[in-house]
């Protein structure tokens, strides 16, 4: 079991537009979804920043079901190619995509997602294999990276420790969960009893910033390009009192952004000099 949900039962886990799930709720929901898929097998998880997608992921991981993480909007031809290559037992996907796979039987549905059985002749799975994901996000590259349970736990623990993520931490999804760093945010927060605001809105939509403010989000995470967008949106002038730290995956913050953060005296490096850990993660924390 990767996520000990029972340990944080009363804490808030997921905050979506229309519902909030405690860890107890997430435990029940995730077990129900993964239970419909039964035991260890390969499943295509069509990712969105939604309750069904995240609860499905958590349930699959805890039950030893291996999700292959793809963008729900991935081009149909590319998905069909992947289906032939990987032969999953099930698809867990948004209801509106169901019609693309009419040959498959729907065996379960929940929160706008359907579980479809492919009846494909499946491959045996290595016992260490936890999940498969692309390194390049939304491209249809058929090459997926294999991650072991051990690897995911080690990575998650090291980031939790480095960023000191605890039960009071709250993030918001501005990266997709089929992207390595997007998933890492979910892993680290669910692992430590923190919470995540789920939104499909982007940095360029008012609703994103409203969700961030209304739910008292404490951390924001991005890739280098996120910071260009934040500059464009004059993030450095925004009044976001609950935000405690920001992180960037994919190397150090560029010197100019760093200078800006320093000059504003809002954020400073978690660690002196460099300030980034083995995962290529760079973080800045609020001084006051």
């Amino acid at each position: 079991m990767i996520f000990d949900l029972g340990k944080f039962a009363g804490n808030t886990a997921l905050i979506a537009e229309n519902e909030t799930l405690t860890y107890e709720d997430l435990k029940i929901r995730s077990e129900e979804i993964s239970g419909a898929a039964g035991g260890r097998c390969l499943i295509f998880l069509f990712c969105k920043n939604s309750v069904a997608s995240v609860a499905g992921y958590v349930g699959f991981m805890n039950r030893g079901i291996v999700p292959l993480m793809i963008d729900a909007d991935l081009d149909l031809d590319l998905v069909k190619n992947l289906l032939q290559l990987y032969r999953p037992k099930y698809l867990w996907l948004p209801e509106n995509l169901r019609e693309n796979y009419s040959a498959y039987e729907k065996i379960y549905e929940r929160d706008g997602y359907n579980l479809l059985a492919t009846n494909a002749e499946t491959f045996a799975l290595n016992e260490k294999l936890a999940l498969l994901m692309t390194t390049s996000g939304s491209t249809g590259s058929p090459k997926f990276v294999r991650q072991s349970y051990e690897n995911i736990l080690a990575n998650t623990k090291s980031i939790v420790e480095y960023l000191q993520i605890g039960e009071s931490e709250r993030s918001i999804t501005n990266l997709p969960m089929n992207y390595v760093y997007g998933l890492s945010i979910i892993n680290t927060h669910i692992f430590s009893g923190g919470s995540i605001v789920l939104t499909e809105k982007t940095l360029f939509q008012k609703e994103f910033w409203q969700a961030l403010k209304n739910n008292s989000v404490t951390n924001l995470n991005g890739v280098p390009y996120t910071f260009e967008m934040l500059q464009r949106l004059r993030f450095f002038r925004m009044d976001l009192p609950t935000l405690k730290f920001i992180t960037q995956a994919g190397g150090k913050l560029d010197p100019e952004t760093h200078l800006k953060l320093d000059r504003q005296e809002i954020f400073c490096n978690v660690r002196r000099g460099g300030g980034y850990c083995a995962n290529g993660l760079s973080a800045c924390r609020k001084i006051a």
């Binding site: 982007t202 390009y225 967008m229 464009r232």
Partner: peptide, 9 residues
Amino acid sequence: AAWDSVGHM
């Protein structure tokens, strides 16, 4: 797909 947040920039 092209009009995502990157495209918006």
